[in-house]
Design a protein around this nucleic acid. Structure first.
Lengths: 355, 355
DNA sequence: CATGATTGTTAAAACGATTTTCTGCACTTG
DNA sequence: CAAGTGCAGAAAATCGTTTTAACAATCATG
């Protein structure tokens, strides 16, 4: 009943042999018609195409991949899809890959190196032609014995500069530095930087940019970095603690999406307001930044460009070009909005009020 | 150079024959050791495992899949990964699938039926064992001639009740109704519903719930539904237009994530505030709802449960159980926060002010 | 007109696993 | 002791393509 209209014998999908038989040609001819690798006479070509249409034949890519030694599949491993940054990254890569007839196998490492390694192994078994990884940690050993064990692989966001890999990241150092300088130029002297974790190179870069900006302003000793972990509540707690201190910072620079969310919640929980009580600068932009009541100033990572570059580099290697290992650092943009203001007035106002 | 340590001949990965040869057994024996389908004597088993370790052998899943007629891959097609709802859905499904050793091929339809159909065809060619689709439209014909052409497939979020498919959705009707009743109970009489599109069943359900709530309150003629499209700016524009009217609504019920963002931006653009000038109720919850200055009241879809149910149903079919077609409607939860308040005071206040 | 090049076609050999079938051996059992 | 019963191992078939190699037929060329 359920397969009316499809004249399949035995209910199984038609194979190239079925098509060949119906069109009275050899399987190889069907293949040649469909792939166009070798010329086929007009009348036979027509017969084949008719048979294909009649049977509803669809080539089994598994078999084709096995024979061709190419799957046109790339594996993507990211730490967390619920992070909009990674969602946007994957979205764009998928889009670009599809344009070139590549599909993606998506896996999450959940910020865990063991899961990451395991997922990469799975992808290797699946014969993916290439890999795009946003590593959970900055060492290769986490997911492979060495670069030589992997198909063409590009690393995004983290693991910048790892030997043997094309790597791409936002210019975290410069972005953090400029962000911090922006705050300094407004007159802030007590700027706390909130990060999720200190073990990652991209975050380390942000910390470095922040510190250098302070140093260059002669305020090296004022640097204060707070670690909040990978959860909103963790960040919120850490920030609340900072905000409760007597020498409360006049500005918060949240160096990650999660941290920004935590910061906003912390500020609100203590019944404070930005930019009146504290200025707030976010690393990672989103639609919400211009939806919140005072617009949130933010450093925007060039997600689209990172995705585009990742795909470009990977495709280059997939098509065999033996190019040098690439290290691409893409510039971020600073969007000054309303959440960053000079501290003085607010500070004075606050001092007169609650503890 | 690059393959030091790996004694592969010719630089190509070792096959089961290589392992068999090194262990002096037949390929079948290696397979039996690795899959455990048939018993193998202890000493041989040890020899095989040693050979596997020495060569760094990793079975080629392509070949295995071809022979087994099972890929342990499921295809997921969603309209838009940058929508946090879908990102969360995919994230959870991936997690669950991985636990059962299934991988996912992810594709975006970009809310376009043509792309959707094309992607589904690709997935069919790839021999995915199952499909999870959040259809761009509510008709099957959009992505397949009929359900019979597809492997086990479950539809999520949209296309509820389509013949031949397991379908899952949030109880959109009930949720919208309850949301609207909440607003009514606060005293609102001019409630505008903002939707992205009217052509989708899930949205139609929300509209119906909204209308019925109004009807039951004897306010059928006060229903006002605004269509904003799939972009934030589209929704914002549509809402701004509503807010500029003389008989401006006292409450906005944004029936989608995008619409909520648009609503907040629109309210802000006109220099209004919620809940003072208009109450705001959002369909779709997110961390941001409790980060915004007045917390945003929201109807939360049970994303995790939808993902879990989708996977449960699919897996059931994958393991052969021939069960009846399931239609699962999962309850939403209403989170009353600060953005919904009685209208009277605000209304009066506003009337005295600007036009 | 014989020879060589070209063209289109197909049979057969891959691709790398799993599964089926067959074989030889040890062990029961009547 | 002959016949039946497991059992473990290996050879061979299989999955559905693509590619190689062999082959015929057509056409040009000296």
């Amino acid at each position: 009943m359920s397969e009316a209209g499809r004249p399949w014998r035995g209910g199984r999908p038609p194979t190239i042999r079925d098509v060949a038989q119906l069109a009275s040609v050899a399987p190889a001819t069907v293949s040649n018609v469909l792939t166009g690798r070798r010329p086929v006479a007009e009348d036979r070509k027509r017969r084949v195409l008719e048979a294909v249409a009649e049977l509803g034949y669809r080539p089994n890519q598994l078999a084709a991949s096995l024979r061709r030694q190419e799957t046109r599949t790339i594996g993507i491993v990211i730490p967390d899809l619920t992070n909009p940054f990674f969602a946007a990254l994957v979205h764009r890569i998928e889009e670009l890959a599809a344009e070139s007839d590549y599909q993606i196998l998506l896996m999450s490492s959940n910020e865990d190196t063991e899961q990451e390694a395991q997922r990469v192994q799975v992808l290797l078994g699946r014969q993916t032609d290439g890999l795009i990884i946003a590593p959970a940690r900055d060492s290769v050993s986490a997911f492979a014995a060495s670069a030589a064990d992997l198909p063409p692989t590009v690393l995004v966001d983290r693991g910048f500069g790892l030997a043997g890999f094309d790597t791409i990241c936002a210019d975290n150092y410069d972005a953090a530095k400029r962000g911090c300088q922006h705050l300094l130029s407004l007159g802030h002297r007590d700027i706390v930087l909130v990060v999720s974790d200190t073990g990652l190179a991209n975050i380390a870069d942000r910390i470095a940019g922040y510190r250098d900006a302070l140093s260059e302003a002669g305020l090296a000793n004022r640097a204060r970095v707070v670690v909040g972990g990978f959860t909103v509540d963790g960040c919120r707690g850490a920030i609340e603690q900072e905000l409760r201190r007597a020498d409360r910072p006049t500005a918060i620079f949240s160096a990650a999406y999660i941290a920004t969310l935590g910061a906003i919640k912390a500020i609100r929980a203590l019944d404070l307001a930005f930019p009146d009580d504290v200025s707030l600068l976010s690393f990672d932009d989103s639609d919400w930044m211009t939806a919140l009541r005072p617009y949130v100033s933010a450093v925007a990572q060039p997600v689209e460009e990172m995705a585009a570059e990742a795909w470009r580099l990977l495709k280059q290697r997939l098509t065999g070009a033996s190019v040098d290992v690439a290290r691409v650092r893409l510039p971020c943009s600073l969007h000054v909005r309303e959440s960053t203001r000079p501290p003085s007035a607010a500070r004075a106002k606050r001092r007169a009020g609650s503890p």
